[in-house]
């Protein structure tokens, strides 16, 4: 561990890990961070297994599989998109 990291950790939390327990997010970042790895790398494994099974197993149908994927992606977008619109409206009207 570099002295830099050591001092950062010492300043934050005297815990042994090099992960900052208390840090604020970096807002210029693209959508990448430890949480991204945790969620997309580990937690969503069953979902990956599911999608893989769709394509690999038998019987399989390309269109249906893509449709399923489309639903997954589309619904996520719609959910957050509509929430975003709602928050913007609330923000404009009330804040």
């Amino acid at each position: 561990m570099t002295p830099l990291a050591a001092s950062a950790v010492a300043a934050l939390a005297s815990g042994p890990a090099a992960v900052p327990l208390a840090s604020s997010p970096e807002y210029t970042l693209p959508f990448v961070g430890p949480g991204t790895y945790l969620i997309f790398g580990i937690v969503l494994l069953p979902v990956y297994a599911m999608v893989a099974a769709w394509f690999i197993g038998d019987p399989s149908d390309r269109f249906a599989n893509l449709l399923g994927l489309g639903y997954l992606a589309g619904l996520t977008t719609v959910l957050w998109g509509s929430l975003f619109v709602a928050t913007i409206i609330i923000g404009v009207v009330f804040f």
Binding site: Y27, L83, T87, G91
Partner: peptide
């Protein structure tokens, strides 16, 4: 009003 604008950028480091 910040539920998306605060949450999404912080998500990768906070979740």
């Amino acid at each position: 009003d910040r539920l998306v604008t605060s949450v999404l950028p912080a998500w990768p480091t906070r979740v």
